[in-house]
Computed example of a mutant assay.
Amino acid sequence: MPYLGQGRALSVTAAQNQSFQVSTPFLNLASTSFTIEAWIYSTIVTGDNGVMGQCQCTSCSNQCFFFLIRSSKLYVGFTLNDINGLTTMTVNTWYHVAFVYNSVTKQQILYLNGVQDNIKSSSSAYQGTNGTFTIGSAKYYPSTTFFNGYIDNVKIETLAKSATEILTAASLIAYYSFDSPNPTYDNGPNGLNGSSINAGIVTGRVNQGIQFTGSSSYFQAYGFYQAGYGVNSNKPFSISMWISTSSYSSCAFVQMSTAYNGGSCFNMLGIWSYTGNAAQLVAQGYAWPAIYGPSITLNTWTHVSWTFSLTNGYRLYVNGVYFGTTGYYSYSGTSGVINWLQIGYSFTCSGNYISNAAFQGIIDEIYVHNREITATEVYTFANP
């Protein structure tokens, strides 16, 4: 059960003392800056639950690194030199967790879902010079504590990542630039590489883009846990891109589906044309709240961002400027599975406002986030 649709996650059970161990090569984190990140899904958050660790001496100051969930909050340290998280965590929920030690500023920093959860200054460096690195368990003073649940995408780097880098790792689901030499690859942190069907790579808004020419021309990628029609209801998301249409025809250019060949699906972004001589953007949320956007011009680049949060509902931005909102909106229906993303059109979906027809034109610079991006971020995407 990975956080993402691609690959697998580590499944561990505390009652069976399960963990993954890295003894060779030795992961040397002593006397240096480092960052550790992971996605975790815990079925127990009470008591002590060891996420990962490395220990030379359990009772010696700064010689035993531990990363725990303790009493529903993160707890990380080097033995007698530790930091507590401030946010209460819940069971059966995916979290992105990160710990940064900055040897220059002497700071320990905890992040939960890309947001700083606590910071400690005047912290001595970790001094452990031997010990197996464990994932799914951690030594805490004399005993070893184990994790119950899933751990995915563990990353260990000997540098102090910035808050912006941590937020990107936690919230950017995928980024498709459509640039050579691998135009269908995901350039974000998760490797959700896609495939193009009867679509070409041409000059785009930024470097190269992908061109669609008809009903059998589209781009498809898998692994979207939280993006408008995902596993859980009312979860925030954002999708942003550049489009340049070559036809004033009603069509869909973004849709989500439960299967590679359709299944249950819905159209998210499209173009509406009443006369065939003019067209406007239309954005549609799950259970059919919709916003009709401004008119668009043939063969002209337009930047579109469509965001959702339970507080603000759906919001549409065009060319970096806020256009409109549904206001507060809540939905309970979801697909219940990790989803497929289609760009350019692919399947006939149920839906009231966006036509089941193919997009003709070029699309570029697609960003998908698992949060509602800010107006400032939208403006930045629209002004590369």
Rank of each mutant, 00 (worst) to 15 (best):
P181C: 00
V368Y: 06
Y292S: 11
P181G: 01
N352L: 15
G5S: 08
S309I: 03
P289F: 05
G200R: 12
L167E: 13
Y292R: 10
F178Q: 08
T326P: 05
I156D: 06
G263A: 07
I173K: 15
I338R: 03
A160E: 01
M89F: 02
W242V: 06
N62S: 12
P189I: 08
Q284Y: 06
Q16R: 15
W288Q: 15
L298R: 08
Q108K: 10
F212G: 00
N118A: 14
I354D: 03
L27T: 11
F147D: 01
G149M: 02
L316R: 05
N198F: 09
I338P: 04
K155T: 12
N356R: 13
F381C: 11
Q21A: 15
L167M: 12
F381D: 14
Y3G: 00
V115I: 13
K120E: 11
F347N: 11
I119N: 02
A382S: 15
T245G: 13
I243F: 13
Y229P: 04
K155C: 05
V378F: 10
L192G: 11
N113G: 05
T90I: 10
Y229V: 01
L27A: 05
W94E: 00
K120P: 07
I373A: 10
N118Q: 10
V337F: 12
Y229E: 02
S195K: 07
A170D: 01
L27K: 08
F20E: 07
Q56A: 13
G128T: 07
W288I: 10
